[in-house]
Write a protein that binds this DNA or RNA. Structure first.
Lengths: 345, 345
DNA sequence: TTGTAAGCGTTATCAT
DNA sequence: ATGATAACGCTTACAA
């Protein structure tokens, strides 16, 4: 790898001149400029990013902290985040915490030591500790997907309450009166909000919705299965079910199909996220779409705006969910599904 | 952020001493060591990785070039790659090429300028050009998943021929005699190898397998659908079908279910990869598992070994696929499924 | 065992 | 408009 020194020598100028033509920081005589450009070309010179980063205290790097990589919706976020980050001339560096606070701290540490220009973080485990770290480092942080409960860290989140409302209304308008909901972990605020939106929208229509109609899952496929089985055991009449993400909805679907309960004829089913899988299953899944691309764009924008010292218009940007109608929901045409005796066995 | 200088000052020693206790490069007096450690602790000092990387010409970074992020199997590879890379004390930097040779080149360039310690690359688009880049940079490269056709670049790949054999044998042993296969893009070597393995294993048993029993897909869900519809139109009797990845298999499944063809009773269906989705669909998918974790481990190992100047035992490590039996395959119990007239409409 | 100083490849300040 | 030079934060001969 050739360095600026090599270029300077070949062009017969000083390194500062080379630096100037590269960064266009200060006007340079057209003639010498040409010589330099020529030398750069011939040597196929590319500025070293570590040296530059060291000097200007910017690694031209955006860090992204995720609790898991291959899990949805993080894959989607990583994907769009990368796209948008490089479009802005940076690189994305990934930090998987595996839901371990210590790993999380370590990853953030690594980022800082690389002079990252900002980090977008999703799912902070031990809030206070992380916030402390964030505070003493003076690099920009933005929370995405899950906002912090305690603090006014800049964040971009979905209107999760609205998501619940959309789900409930859609089902209600179809004519359903007997609902259930499988949630994510209820210690996560966004899950409670989704549930609240769901409940409130039912209440608008004076539809009763009791505690035993809620199953607390963990956003994974298996808890869709667990939740569905729980609901059967409760012997609660249900014609419409909302799972707070697509993965769990697919879990429900599987149980329903195994029991020979038809979707949507016997039971309407909704998910949330609009993952690719929602279009792959049979029937295709009605769901609530999250605007992942837009979330990434906003997050990166906020970071870069903070970095350049600009004030943020809003510390918290909240994006709107969107109903996507597919074939897993329909008006109720049969009696509600009660307990299926095969389960007692 | 405090620097080594701060630590040195606080501990009353020189920076070199600090460096020594940190890197344990040269023995340091127990007493001064303690003082240094103390100062480090009090200042919460962490070495800057850019400075270090600049000096020792190692960014403590492994680059990973992928053609797409959220697509399988790259998600899986990214996941395990990240895990293994940080375990070895490095960070993973991601480069998404979006299947664009220019972007690919640009990403590699960025990596090099960051003094990456190595890059693992999957799916090289314009071979000759990339190889040139690799050649003149003297950083280690390893190809994963897809090997290069022309060159002896170190690579870790699956025994794809074997995968085809495993699929065919499993189906054959179940008693099937009438097969079809939906492949990935046949300009990709690995797809041809899978197909060859499949064919050869059928030939062992003198089972005829003609050209029209093959549909060339593109590894995406939709081409599973396309492939299945193609096969129906061909009016070829089939009782067993192998799709060269799970995504396409799920596409097939969807068409089959829509047509009321039962899996596995009327048709046995196999995929490949063993993605999570294989366990999520109904029936669960029999598939050929790829050892993603092991691939990542091997790739990173090779990189690190090359970096430290060690010779590689083999330039090419090939890993074994594994049959995973689930519920989408069974002995043929009915007449082969012919053309379904609903399709002509 | 410890310190001094040069150097990694940049950018930025100050002269010229 | 251009060139020396110091500095970014670290490692590593070389001296002491």
């Amino acid at each position: 790898m050739s360095s600026m020194k090599d270029v300077a020598r070949l062009a017969g100028v000083s390194v500062s001149t080379v630096s100037r033509v590269i960064n266009e920081s200060i006007p340079v005589d057209e003639n010498t400029k040409k010589k330099v450009l020529d030398a750069i070309d011939r040597l196929n010179y590319k500025p070293n990013l570590l040296a530059k980063g060291l000097r200007v205290k910017s690694g031209h790097l955006i860090g992204f902290i995720v609790p898991e990589i291959s899990l949805h919706p993080f894959v989607n976020l990583i994907n769009s985040m990368e796209e948008y980050v490089v479009r802005r001339g940076f690189n994305l560096i990934l930090g998987n915490t595996q839901n371990d606070p210590n790993v999380e701290e370590m990853q953030i540490d690594h980022f800082i030591r690389r002079n990252v220009d900002g980090v977008v973080i999703t799912r902070v485990s031990d809030e206070s500790r992380i916030l402390e770290i964030i505070d003493k480092s003076n690099i920009p942080f933005v929370a995405v997907d899950r906002e912090l409960e305690m603090q006014e860290l800049p964040s971009v989140v979905l209107d999760n309450y609205k998501a619940g409302v959309l789900a409930a209304r859609h089902l209600r308008e179809l004519g359903h009166r007997q609902f259930a909901c499988i949630t994510g972990p209820l210690n996560i605020k966004l899950c409670r909000e989704r549930l609240n939106g769901f409940k409130d929208a039912l209440a608008e229509d004076a539809i009763p919705f009791s505690r035993e109609r809620v199953f607390e899952g963990d956003f994974k496929f298996n808890s869709g299965i667990k939740g569905m089985e729980y609901l059967f055991h409760q012997r609660i009449p249900i014609t419409a079910l909302w799972a707070q993400n697509d993965l769990m909805a697919v879990g429900c679907l599987k149980v329903l199909q195994q029991k020979g309960i038809r979707v949507p004829e016997d039971m309407s089913l909704m998910g949330m996220d609009d993952l690719e899988i929602a279009r792959m299953v049979n029937p295709t899944l009605t769901t609530i779409k999250q605007p992942f691309k837009q979330m990434s764009r906003e997050a990166v924008d906020i970071l870069l705006r903070m970095r350049s010292g600009q004030d943020l218009k809003e510390k918290k940007v909240v994006l709107q969910p969107q109903l996507v109608k597919r074939s897993s929901t329909a008006p109720p045409i049969t009696q509600p599904v009660y307990h299926n005796s095969s389960l007692d066995a």
